[in-house]
Amino acid sequence: MIKFSNVSVDYPYSEGLSNVNVEFKDKEFAFVLGPTGSGKSTLLRLIYMDIYPTNGRVDVKNWSSKKITARKIRKLRRNIGIVFQDFRLIQNLSVFENVALPLIINGYPRKYIKRKVEAILDEIGLLNSLRQKAGTLSKGEAQRVGIARAVVKNPFVILADEPTGNLDPDSSVTVFNLLRKINKLGTAVIMATHDYLLIKDAPNRRILMDNGKILKK
């Protein structure tokens, strides 16, 4: 589904990734582990084509970093869910509107959006907060909204970049369990984290990174 072939990324003052070869399968839950600056975020950014390899290629389903156009990038991103450490919600919009955004962008009808968003907010326990502005949510709630926004468009993969990095332990567990639940329903999840404690009992594949290199797949 996602394949890195001899991928290197050069940043102006450092090496982002060095000759990375890794593959992620359909419906897989994989952790990308490593300290800050090890290249975890670079790896994820390459998947949603926010940056491009200096050498090598990244293939995401039928899209290839070698020949993707701006139009195809949009299409690719409509099929990927992204969860950030800092949530990246639009503060002046309500919880409902934030979660509905991907569907609004895709031009779905109002009734469908309402039904779908309310169902997901119910699932994550935020149905009562649907009119609340995103800027007024707690960090744990904000990240749950971020996950709801990522999952609402039925993506084939969710890329979670340090999703628990800003959360207290309780909220971290809630968010992690939510991601596992989503994965069980058939969506692949690639989670970059350095919270080893949180995932210590999880049976999923771990990809260890350091200094832009993969130490263990």
Binding site: Y48, D50, R74, R78, I82, R88, I90, P102, I105
Partner: peptide
């Protein structure tokens, strides 16, 4: 704008 771009906005 960046968030909307990541969501695939045209």
């Amino acid at each position: 704008i960046f968030i909307l771009q990541l969501l695939g906005s045209g």
